[in-house]
Amino acid sequence: MNFGQRLGIALSAFVAFAVGAIAVTSLLLGDNPAIFNNQPGSERAAELLALPGDVLLRLVVIVISLSVVIGIANLLYVHVGRVARGKVYSGALLASFGVAIFWHLTRQGDPSLLEAVQLPIESSLAALLFVSLVAGASRVMQKRADVWGLLFVAVVVLVLLASVPLAELAPLRAWRDWLMRVPVSAGARAFLLGIAMATVVTGQRVLLGQDRSYRG
């Protein structure tokens, strides 16, 4: 690695650290006059503190939306190449893309293409999920016949049976409601807290320059 490359890495790390520090400070503390003890001029100071975060956020939103456009252009470019090699499915993809754009340009506000094509495919794919989930649940007991597999399947069966509108199954509904209110709530809180903590840890690694995925 030569001096120029090292300098480039140091520069990108410095930019990342500086921008990260400004963005986190601004987003976390901005627009909050209380941190200045509501002294005279604290409104203006809070507004100024929020300004860098606001500017950076606007900048990144525009860049990300432009990146989406670039990504779609790349998708089309790849599939044009595949059509040239005789791939029929890519032709269908390009045709459906073209039809949707043409439809939007010529009949703005008409949602019938969305209703006729997009919604049926989306909902049919979601319906197929039922088959996969039921097959997965049945395999749990084949692959993992222990107390945890049994508990998992018992909860699944209890929640499913409690959803059946039969008077005979009413006692199960009380069980299901308690299950949802207490153990499921506790487990879900733990998952959400875990995800949030992992996000904070991963984010601070990026902000401190320990994780430099932007080097590519």
């Binding site: 930019v15 990342a16 900048l59 990144v60 990026v206 932007y214």
Partner: peptide, 13 residues
């Protein structure tokens, strides 16, 4: 690229 990644990470944090 670092600016985009870092601002996204800040928003996430």
């Amino acid at each position: 690229f670092a600016v985009v990644i870092v601002v996204s990470a800040s928003v996430a944090v």
